[in-house]
């Protein structure tokens, strides 16, 4: 009904970058710096090696989950099943590592990737909003994880070494898990810049119709975004299983909110098209520093959930591009 919903032109300065865009681009970094400074006043040794190591260790699974979610959010969708997939991955690792060894380490992320392919395929071909499909997927994989684990934590009884290095190994005193996650974020950013279709997912979020009508395989792009999200959730599962020496059917579930919060507070617009893994990295750092900082100034961890909730809503309110939303549902 074109007459009833006139598409509003995006009001922007001649250069194409508005003041608001600029602020949003720099804002997360400022928040991070201010947070770090604030925590330093309470904990002068906050930037010591031991403290940073702990910080990065707790950041690694959140960052991996958040990078995965970034791909989907760039296309303007969301995958609500990602944290559950990471839980399922820990269960599968704990079950399979003793018998399969390295095979399990390879197989589990591939299966996690396939869960994303499944979600993405349903979204792309049935043309159903991703939050609904992934909500269903969330239930599906929760049930599978609970069934396979009989709803209990499974200790990794043998071959822990196959994934143990993820937690134990240090480079310059810093945990390899976080360093690898950061490296991945950087590599993806580079790929986005140098590939001739590097901004395909961004364009999905900005102008999917124009992309399709220029002959681009938009369905494949959408499935790719979900597949990458699944893959990174699987990798997060590896890090979690490694740090907990076990698999559990809800091990990753509590990371859902912090990971989504990391994506949006980093400046990735949930309307899609704006953002990237480096923004997500900043967002993940903010979330973990915030967590530590709350502790430092003596706030009860019970308030953590409230803060995640408020951060998600606040960041989305600030970054959402309302001119591209027709009817908000």
């Amino acid at each position: 009904m074109a007459i009833l919903t006139p598409t509003r032109p995006r009001q922007a300065a001649a250069s194409g970058v508005t003041v608001k865009d600029r602020i949003i681009a720099v804002f997360p970094l400022l928040v991070l710096i201010v947070l770090v400074l604030l925590v330093l006043t309470q904990q002068p040794n906050f930037l010591s090696l031991a403290s940073v190591r702990g910080l990065l260790e707790s950041m690694a699974p959140i960052l991996l989950l958040a990078i995965g979610q970034t791909f989907v959010i760039l296309t303007g969708g969301i995958d609500l099943s990602f944290a559950v997939v990471s839980s399922l991955s820990t269960v599968l690792l704990a079950l399979w590592l003793p018998d399969m060894g390295v095979g399990a380490l390879i197989l589990v992320p591939i299966l996690a990737c396939l869960t994303g392919v499944l979600t993405g395929t349903v979204v792309a071909f049935a043309q159903i909003p991703s939050f609904i499909v992934s909500l269903g997927a969330m239930g599906l994989w929760t049930g599978v994880a609970l069934t396979l684990s009989s709803a209990s934590t499974i200790r990794i009884s043998a071959n822990y070494d196959v994934i143990g290095w993820v937690t134990d190994m240090r480079i310059a005193g810093l945990p390899v898990s976080a360093l690898l996650a950061i490296l991945l974020a950087i590599l993806i950013s580079v790929a986005i810049r140098v590939l001739n279709r590097g901004r395909a997912l961004h364009t999905m979020g900005l102008a999917e119709n124009a992309l399709l009508m220029s002959g681009n395989p938009t369905r494949a792009y959408r499935i790719l975004a979900f597949a990458l999200c699944g893959l990174f959730s699987g990798l997060a599962g590896v890090v979690l299983a490694s740090s907990q020496y076990s698999g559990g059917p809800s091990l990753g579930d509590t990371l859902m909110l912090p990971a989504i919060a990391a994506v949006v507070i980093g400046g990735n617009a949930i309307t899609g098209g704006v953002g990237g893994p480096l923004k997500t990295l900043v967002g993940a750092l903010i979330i973990v520093v915030l967590r530590v900082g709350l502790n430092a100034i003596g706030i009860d961890p019970a308030y953590e959930q409230i803060i995640y909730g408020a951060v998600i809503i606040g960041a989305v309110v600030l970054t959402i591009d309302r001119s591209r939303l027709g009817i908000v549902k």
């Binding site: 949930i270 308030y303 959930q305």
Partner: peptide
């Protein structure tokens, strides 16, 4: 504030739990 409802309620749900 024109934020999709699933996103708002994901946040307020967390606030409720908190």
């Amino acid at each position: 504030l024109r934020v999709p409802s699933f996103m708002v309620t994901l946040g307020t749900g967390a606030i409720g739990v908190g």
